[in-house]
Amino acid sequence: MNHHSNFKSKMHAKKNWRNRYHRYANQLQFLMCKLRQKLVRNPRSGYTLVDDRLYTLNPIRLKNSRIHLQYQAFVPSNDQEVHELNESFYLLLLHEDNLAHFFHDIFFPVYVRWRQNPHKVFASINENRFLKDFLIAVFGVNNVVFAKRSDIYHFQNLLLTPESRNIRSFDGYKQICKEIKAICFKHYGIQENRTRHLLYGRTELTRKKLLNIDVNFLNTHLIEQPILSKLSFEETIRTLAQAKTFAYIVGAGVFYLLFLDENVRVLEINPYQNNSWAQMFGLADLCQLQVHVSKNIHPSSNPAQGDPQLDSHVYFDEAIKEKLLMLAS
Rank of each mutant, 00 (worst) to 15 (best):
L35V: 13
R23E: 14
F103P: 01
Q70Y: 06
S5L: 15
D79A: 10
R115G: 06
N128Y: 10
V82D: 05
L205E: 08
Q273A: 09
Q80K: 14
N126P: 14
R265G: 13
Y55N: 08
T236P: 02
L324R: 09
H197I: 05
N86R: 15
T195K: 07
I320Y: 02
L286P: 02
V293F: 02
I237V: 13
I223H: 02
I67R: 04
M1D: 14
L211E: 07
K186R: 08
N142Q: 09
A25E: 12
S65P: 01
F7H: 15
K132A: 13
K38L: 15
S312M: 08
L49D: 08
N98F: 10
L54P: 01
G140W: 00
L258T: 07
L205R: 13
Y71K: 12
R18Y: 12
Y173P: 03
I176D: 08
H197T: 12
N166I: 00
E179I: 10
F89H: 12
H4A: 11
H154T: 03
S329P: 03
D151A: 14
L198D: 09
L92W: 04
F107K: 06
R115T: 10
R61K: 13
L85G: 06
N142A: 00
Q242Y: 10
I136H: 03
L257K: 07
F259E: 08
M326H: 13
I190M: 06
D52C: 05
